[in-house]
Nucleic acid binder design. Structure first.
Lengths: 342, 342
DNA sequence: CTGAAAGCGCTTACAG
DNA sequence: CTGAAAGCGCTTACAG
């Protein structure tokens, strides 16, 4: 099924078919021809070949999301948000490396060879950003501190963590620990830093055990907790902040096994507010990170970029709405959900 | 960066460049030229343009996974399995509709317009299969009963549910209920059917409330449970099988709220064995469905299909290994994990 | 408003 | 073993 066959049936040229199926008829195709083509398209069930179209246009309608891992249910929400905001004009291609690894330079090039309409990169590292050839519009997700390298959409961790520390201090905790994520991305570095700096401001001590970290997975977190709990306990830690809810699940499970009472002996908190967090036992106190809003925000930033450069090209205006939208990109709110575990 | 530039630098034709970068040099390119091209490729950082290559070849290296929803953490595992088995030769494109809806005919055509190397479809419905234009190699996941329509990879629900019923009967239950999924796909139909038929064989009654169903999401399940619990209770139901672990989480949460003791008053079970299921309270008894193995199996079936038709084309042999592999496609084991909730 | 034609960057018979 | 050339199916100036 090709445009040539449609043209044949409609009695027009393929150029006209292309104009019609792409909706570029204004002042260029007669109403009569529009209708002929449309009816031929319907009759033959014609769909524009994406590959040929992309080659001719120089760009595809594929938007690629690069994510380090998908076993964390958190990403399901991000993807929902992206899909919802993207609409049916674009296709979402997912590139995952798994196990907290980042894509290699080869992976990056393979992605760019797809001529994507946009690249959405979750928690990129330096190597990724360095290897990335120019070309595709780029938006970073969950990459605090990289705002100068590309349009970025982030959570308002400062507020969320401040609320968490206030809550912990009010419950009488004076020494807190942190179970980190092994994926050393900015968002986790920032969580740790904010905790460390904020603790003092709230009259608490931050007991640092940098090795206490695991992948985003309850089993790994459980093992890490089993290993480091004695040190935290001996240091007087009564509240353990976990890098994600998935980490917290593992801690909760292992604590039960070890007979460590939560929140009596140890308060436990997470980040994300996954659906199961209200159901685990004890129900998890956590900083909610609305993944869907993050996904939506990322797509908006992508579109702003596209529109911005369009205007730029069309009108040679250095500060189009794209640039404005970018500068104004708001942080995604992160609020504390207090339940039973802390 | 094009093949022409590489050819220029290497002092060869673009045809030779193409042969080299595609590894089709055997008996066709001299060692000297191979090295010249390779070094030019390295120097220029050349990567084959995927779009142009796909157009010329007639097929891309994109494999598309069509999934109804991604908020269910279960799919994270399926995707991991697919990625792992796919290797770096192919790219995985994800197409999601969300909220348990299936892709429309328009979506389907857009997908096929990408000329995918393969289509992996999770829980397809009739409309999808009907609208699907021939062309791309197809594998169905989680589609019991559709084995005759396309190569399919399924869980061994029969064994898993039989084990579940045996366990429930041994614990003295005589009347069981089922909280269904609203996404009316084969796998859920089959779970219900096996439960209904199997109950009698295990000396139990199946109390049918067909309307008792929700999307795969704890909140929806909680609401459904709140609504139908009185009817189940009045009918003497002491064990409630939930369509997925996510459903069960909602039931557990709501039961606690309502003061329904689990498993004392009501035993609750799920399907999937998500990471959080060991941590929820009470820990969930569930039928484990290894998503990663499902993903791997699907890719193997896809490759078998590809190899099969290759051989077929090359040697005109009606029963190549592809066909054999297909017929032998084993069910993915589903085993019962007994914890505290039932 | 219309169509012939060039071009997007590759791959693959084909002739040598 | 090598390269010129056709072709993949579109899109987009361009001339009319």
């Amino acid at each position: 099924m090709t445009a040539a066959e449609v043209a044949e049936l409609a009695g027009t040229s393929v150029a006209t078919v292309s104009l019609v199926v792409n909706g570029k008829t204004a002042g260029r195709v007669s109403q009569a021809n529009i209708e002929r083509v449309l009816s031929a398209v319907r009759e033959l069930g014609y769909v524009v070949d994406h590959t040929a179209s992309s080659l001719a246009k120089g760009t595809s309608n594929i938007v690629i999301l690069v994510a380090p891992d998908l076993s964390n249910p958190f990403y399901g929400r991000v993807i929902s948000g992206i899909k919802a905001e993207l609409g049916s004009e674009y296709q979402l291609l997912l590139s995952v490396t798994g196990e907290g690894r980042n894509p290699s330079a080869a992976d990056v090039h393979r992605l760019v060879a797809l001529r994507p309409a946009g690249l959405l990169v979750e928690a990129p590292d330096d190597a990724f950003l360095r290897d990335l050839p120019a070309g595709a519009p780029l938006v970073l997700l969950d990459a605090p501190g990289r705002e100068t390298q590309a349009p970025t959409v982030n959570f308002d961790l400062t507020s969320g963590i401040s609320a968490l520390l206030t809550h912990l201090a009010a419950r009488g905790h004076t020494r807190i620990g942190y179970l980190d994520s092994l994926t050393r991305t900015e968002t986790f570095e920032l969580r740790r830093t904010l905790l460390e700096r904020g603790a003092a401001a709230h009259g608490m001590d931050y007991v640092a055990i940098p090795e206490a970290a695991s992948l985003i997975d309850p089993d790994g977190a459980a093992a890490a907790f089993a290993k480091y709990w004695p040190r935290w306990r001996d240091a007087g830690v009564t509240a353990l902040v976990c890098a994600t809810d998935s980490h917290a699940y593992g801690v909760l499970g292992k604590a039960r096994e070890l007979g460590v009472s939560v929140p009596g002996t140890l308060a436990v908190t997470g980040f994300d507010n996954l659906p199961a967090s209200a159901i685990v036992s004890p129900a998890l106190t956590t900083v909610e990170l609305p993944g869907e809003a993050l996904g939506r925000g990322a797509v908006r930033a992508l579109m702003a970029q596209r529109d911005g450069s369009d205007e730029h090209a069309d009108q040679d205006r250095p500060t189009g709405p794209g640039v404005a939208a970018l500068a104004a990109a708001p942080l995604i709110g992160a609020r504390l959900i207090v339940r039973d575990s802390a």
